[in-house]
Simulated assay, not measured.
Amino acid sequence: MQKSLRIGQILYTNVLPVYFYFQQERFEDQIEFIRQVPATLNQAMARGEIDLGPISSFSYAEHASRYVALADLSVSANGRVGSLFLFSKKPIEQLNGAKIALTNTSATTVNLLKIILSKFYDYEISYVTQEPILADMLREADAALLIGDDAIQAVRRGGDLHVYDLGELWHQFTGYSMTFAIWAVRKEVLAEQSELLAEVHNSFLASKRKTRENPAPLIDYVHTHFGGDKQEWAQYFQGLQHDFGDVQRIGLLYYYRCAAELGLLPAPATVDLWQAGGRQTNTTLTR
C-alpha cells in the first residue's frame, strides 16, 4: 500500500539539519522517505514517483508550472559552500578552450559552472558528464566538477590540483547568495494532502531550528559516520543556509535569469511559495 506522502531526501550531509530532528514517529505509516542523489530525485519528482523533497533549484525551474516551493526551506550559501568544487589541473584563468568533466549527480551546480565560465569569464568549454570519481574524470579532462560528500572527500584527500568553490565564485561576481536546492511539492499533492503536508512542513522547520540552536549532536553524528574533523564540520554547517528568505530568493532568481540568457532555460523562472495554512505567494526579481 502506498503511503500518503513520499518524501525525497538528498543523499548528502548538506540537508541533514532539516531531517536530523524530524519526528518521523509522529507520522507512523503516513510517510515514506526516498533517499537518492539530487539528479535522481529530480527525475523521480518529474515522473511523480515522489511527492515532495529537496530537488535541484534548476530542476524546479524546469518544472515550475507543476511545483510549489515549501516556504523557508532551501540549501543555500552566501559565499563559500564547502561542498561544490571545481578541481583543475591548471588555474581557472587558463581554462578557456578546456575540457571539463561534470558529475552526473547534479543539475543546479553543473549549470552554475556553465554560467560562471561563459558569462563571467567568456570561455568556450567542452563538457562531458561522468560518474563522480575524480581520478577517472581527470584522466582526459582538464578539470572536474564534484558536489556534496564526493567533493568533501576529494578535498580531504588533498593533492596538487587547483580547487575552486562555486558558491564563492558566484558571490564574487554577482554579490548574490546562491540556492542549490529547494523543498518542492507537486501541485496536485496540495489539494490531496494539505493537512498532512502542513504537519510535515512544520516538522522540517522545527528540525532546522533545533539544529541551529544546538548543532553539537549533528556534528557528532557526521563526524562518526563520515569522518573528518569536528571543527571542519562545524564550519561547513555554519556556512550553509537552510532558509529561503528574500536574500536567497533574489539570488536564485538572478541565477534563473542568467540561465535563460545562456539558453540553459527557455525563460527565467519564478518561485511559488506555500506554507501551512495554504498561503501561496509568487516571487519575482525586482532588482
Rank of each mutant, 00 (worst) to 15 (best):
A181P: 00
Q94V: 02
T211E: 04
V222Y: 00
Q172V: 00
A216M: 09
V75W: 05
E93I: 05
T13D: 03
G8Y: 07
L190I: 15
E62Y: 02
Q130I: 00
H201T: 03
F87Q: 06
V15P: 02
Y60A: 07
L253P: 07
E62K: 15
Y254T: 03
L86P: 06
H242N: 11
G263V: 10
H63I: 06
A143W: 05
R156M: 09
H201F: 01
G277P: 04
D72P: 05
E213L: 13
R279F: 05
S76G: 11
T179V: 15
V110Q: 12
L252W: 02
H171E: 11
G159V: 03
F204Q: 02
L273H: 10
I219D: 05
D150Q: 07
V15Y: 01
L113D: 05
I50S: 06
R209Y: 02
T211W: 02
Q23K: 15
G228F: 12
F180V: 01
E199R: 15
G251Y: 00
W233N: 11
R157D: 06
P17R: 02
V110H: 05
K114E: 01
T179I: 07
I115V: 15
F180P: 00
F58L: 09
W274P: 05
A71P: 06
Q172S: 11
Q2A: 09
R80M: 06
G79E: 03
P266C: 04
N202K: 12
A216V: 13
D160L: 10
L252P: 01
M45R: 01
E49L: 14
G53P: 03
I55L: 12
Y256S: 10
H171D: 06
D272V: 08
